[in-house]
Design a protein around this nucleic acid. Structure first.
Lengths: 363, 363
DNA sequence: TTGTAAGCGTTATCAA
DNA sequence: TTGATAACGCTTACAA
């Protein structure tokens, strides 16, 4: 959440000297420069060296007519489109936004253009959009949290290499997964609360059919067990990764089990909802209850108080994905180790008892 | 900010019965069905009626081979791509996200696919991306807050109809603008504060080269003058539409002019920053200072306390834009009246004196 | 109603 | 190094 604002609108007004003329064809350029179409094509693509004189004549003509190759024709003839399909679950999600930004920027350099489509968390849509991308002959596809099963993905990957973010798959030359270590992140967050003296730590879970939501719950559970506190299902409420779900879950929690001293939410949006529910009830954060989120959305550092959360390096993950898919397209090998997550301790958590001795493991 | 979460993942797993086969061509379908390629094309496009028997044979072949037309070839031959280019300033902005969602959903129905590109607030990029879209032969273009001057836009519009959101232009068949009434919105917000008894109302402005930022400042100013309070430049601080700018501006304001009772921010992100700066200083909202934002980002209703702000119906505007560009492509007339904005009074503002008499206008 | 054939604007193969 | 020429997969006159 950074940029409805202005950044670097570069100084000069840059008036349009030459009107764009997309209807000009390669053939006309060839004629104007007194060479054959193939020569023009070669210059355009750097496919072969050409006499400097011709090279210059062609470049002049291109500039004069402000010629732009027709991407459709090029794609049809070459089989390549320099386009990457990016399938997201929701264009408007603050969570995916940063991924998209990373992908877009990293794709720009090697000359690829992303096409974003969104499947709105709908399995049928996901399939339809994927086929649409393939029909557009994209050179590769990046999937953000695909829900389709691996067999289907493998099948589609026959038409274009695919990289799945936030999921691990049986890696091959055509299909690869870039997993994110949700379990470790959730465990760290829970440990953080434990170290601060919390024992009754509630959890607001994400949708139970989400792989990463399950991992986060597992991380929470394992940290509790590991610390000898034990896992109490009574302290877990179901959320849906949305603010509204956070509000509702928090209200149920307060009504049902008012003695917890901390709440760990499966994602930041849930934490926003939980925060509001507590605000309404007059429960102070962190004085009465500590709160931890997951994702580190751009807004989270501007909550009052700023939210302690598990940071996903989404922008960097996006860049990695873009670089990865380009390597796959070029038949280069890629290496995908799970992305580690880091806890960002801000101001919604507070120590409530002397810290546990950290030397334990030693003895 | 709604949807990292789950919505309606439809039940059944939907296994891939038929593997996709994009390499199958129309010609092969024709052969398999025992008809000519043109007949297949006609069936695909509904261009002409065909004998039921042939129709069925073709449809069977299409299903059997799971045939998908090559969009590139189709575009090259027909000159249409069923694609709309959407140029945004920033994919990752929470503000644009809702516009994109509206656009995407409304485009889906008439069968168009959006291609999103972002110019990152950079004028040169804006131009480059626009030319890229044209090179891709998109059928139409939606611009979110274009910075390019009108002459340039008019020029580009020769290649594809363009619709500019949040800006008014000299409307024509090829270029249209959908203005948003920022001035009225800002005036309403300021009036709201005045009605609540505030007199020293500070303003944190947006970037001074943004048309809408200027309008918002104008709205603020005119409401003050109209109420007989008068405009005091001392109460205006420069922001940049970003959270960081809001923090900095608020700090300057507090240091320089600590007596104001309300702050109106040019957008919500600025308000988030201002809110944090006040939190750090122990200034309570709304007890000590009332705060008003602009945009109504999805997160704003989850601030603590929930932010009073001017709501832009962004999703709906996105839908309107999508419908508009489709009409332009179809050479139908479109009608564009400025979008009105509405104040959403939430909990960051508070009455500090007896309200002004509302009957004034009567006498 | 249907088929034939000529594009659409490139790239790529093959000679020269 | 360069130029013809045949694809690429579809649409669309024009004919039949």
């Amino acid at each position: 959440m950074t940029d409805h604002g202005s950044d670097d609108r570069s100084g000069a007004p840059q008036l349009p000297e030459v009107p764009l003329a997309p209807n000009v064809t390669l053939e006309e350029i060839a004629r104007a420069a007194g060479v054959s179409p193939s020569t023009v094509s070669r210059i355009l693509n750097g496919t072969a060296r050409v006499l400097p004189a011709k090279q210059q004549a062609v470049e002049e003509a291109i500039a004069r007519f402000n010629y732009r190759p027709n991407i459709l024709a090029r794609g049809l003839a070459s089989g390549r489109t320099e386009t990457i399909g990016v399938l997201t679950q929701a264009v408007s999600s603050p969570f995916y936004a940063e991924w998209l930004r990373g992908i877009e920027e990293a794709l720009y350099e090697p000359g690829f253009t992303p096409i974003f489509v969104s499947s709105r968390w709908n399995l049928a849509d996901e399939k339809a959009r994927l086929e649409q991308l393939i029909a557009r002959r994209v050179d590769g596809i990046i999937l953000l949290h695909a829900q389709l099963d691996e067999a289907t993905l493998t099948d589609y990957a026959r038409w274009a290499p695919m990289l799945v973010l936030g999921r691990s798959v049986q890696n091959s030359a055509a299909l690869a997964g870039l997993p994110i270590d949700n379990l470790q992140g959730a465990r760290d967050a829970t440990r953080h609360l434990i170290e601060q003296g919390h024992r009754e730590i509630a959890f607001i879970a994400g949708p139970s059919n989400h792989e990463d939501a399950i991992e986060r719950l597992d991380g929470y559970r394992s940290a509790l067990i590991e610390a000898g506190i034990g896992f109490d299902p009574e302290l877990v409420e179901q959320g849906d990764y949305l603010e509204t779900g956070g509000v509702a879950a928090m209200e149920r929690l307060i009504a049902r089990h008012p003695s917890f001293s901390a709440v760990f939410c499966a994602n930041d949006q849930t934490a926003y909802g939980a925060r509001l529910a507590m605000f309404r009830r007059g429960v102070r954060v962190p004085d009465d209850v500590s709160l931890v989120g997951f994702d580190d959305l751009p807004t989270s550092s501007y909550m009052t108080p700023p939210l302690t959360t598990v940071r996903q390096p989404t922008y960097e993950i996006g860049r990695l994905a873009a670089q990865g898919i380009v390597r796959m397209i070029r038949k280069q090998s890629i290496e995908l180790s799970p992305i580690p997550l880091t806890l960002v301790a801000r101001e919604t958590t507070r120590r409530i008892a002397p810290p546990l001795s950290r030397g334990d493991a030693r003895g």
